[in-house]
Design a protein around this nucleic acid. Structure first.
Lengths: 120, 120, 120, 120
DNA sequence: GTGGTCTAGACCACC
DNA sequence: GTGGTCTAGACCACT
């Protein structure tokens, strides 16, 4: 597994996005153990400090829990995970619609482009 | 006219986005004169250098032209402007779809949320 | 007659270059009368002040002479005109060679590109 | 290392030209790390912001890449670098020929002057 | 320590 | 008055 990072967003943010994405997609399951900070850092090709920060933020968001001496685990709090999923979905749609309006596209115009894209 | 800037993107970028948005929405028309750097800077509540940078970038993108001593004007190159519109639209849709896939939502799930949102 | 001006050099400089070019090419001859400042300004689509400056500089370079009440004339000083021609030629070649060296191209490489260009 | 700047071109442009020149001449190699913005600024005797602008412009031209917190590096994209070399060469020759024609010199006349110069 | 953003203010060339 | 360049210095995010 190797990662490409975009230059415009912080690496730690991109990693958080990736992990929450894994969670939403079901690639990571409730209660599952995450790799150790160092292990994951090597895997992702980033500095261990960066990875440390990622884990810290994830815990702050309430989606992982740390068991001392054992490692970091995805929370089993299903409600929190469902909530995460809904937050992300809402944010996705909000951003999209806000952008459409900011640029003055019509719904119809966008809808057409999307259908064309799906077919092309 | 007064502006709010988000803390997560550079101000000059947000200004570029705003102006290109005005262009796409038709609030700015081909050949139209933009406010002077200093005037716009005051209006937007930013430093003149920041605005200078915005204008320079816009010129680099080929969507404005500057006439020395006279001011900055929207290009009359309709092709470039049409191209800009399409670029923005495509980018909008691409980002949306890429994000949906990255998070593993289904098209149907998203579609439902959007309809519910439009009704709600 | 209508002119395009490059945005990176002062208009008055471009006009000076154009007129000295006319002189070197023989499109303007010794003793010949130039159009009036206002006439030429209209023709070139520039401000009369700009044209005034052009004429002033040309006179300063010793290549035109002003006869009060009659207008501006190309000098009949053949030596000065010949000198002008040589200056321009030398400068042209100097710039070219200095640039080649600054970029580290070989003479041969440039020679080949020029021949290819002339044939293509 | 110390620099002289001509008064007629922006310093940041001259710095860009110098660096692209180093690249073309091979004094800078693909993947090589450039000095930090601040370091280079001191070296060149310019303000750090001026140097910042130079680096930003180089990145925009696709000839450098920046790794956050690590520094700025020459791209390893050999195609881009080759392209840069050809662009510069073509531009050099184009300018030269355009100027010759604008002034009405004959090819032969120029060729003679150049040979004489090379010998003199 | 690295790049990046922003401000404040001076100064210049052009029209 | 217009755009453009440059400096000086502060502050921030990332590694």
């Amino acid at each position: 597994m190797s990662f490409d990072f975009l230059p415009d967003k912080p690496i730690y943010q991109q990693l958080i996005d990736r992990i929450t994405g894994d969670l939403i997609r079901g690639a990571l399951k409730p209660g599952e153990k995450l790799p150790s900070v160092r292990e994951y850092a090597v895997e992702a090709g980033v500095n261990a400090n960066t990875m440390q920060r990622v884990y810290k933020e994830l815990e702050g968001m309430g989606i992982t829990e740390t068991k001392r001496g054992q490692g970091t685990f995805v929370t089993e709090n299903a409600e929190r995970l469902g909530q995460l999923r809904e937050e992300k979905k809402a944010q996705l749609i909000d951003d999209f619609i806000r952008n459409i309006e900011a640029l003055g596209f019509t719904e119809q115009e966008i809808a057409e482009s999307m259908t064309r894209r799906r077919q092309g």
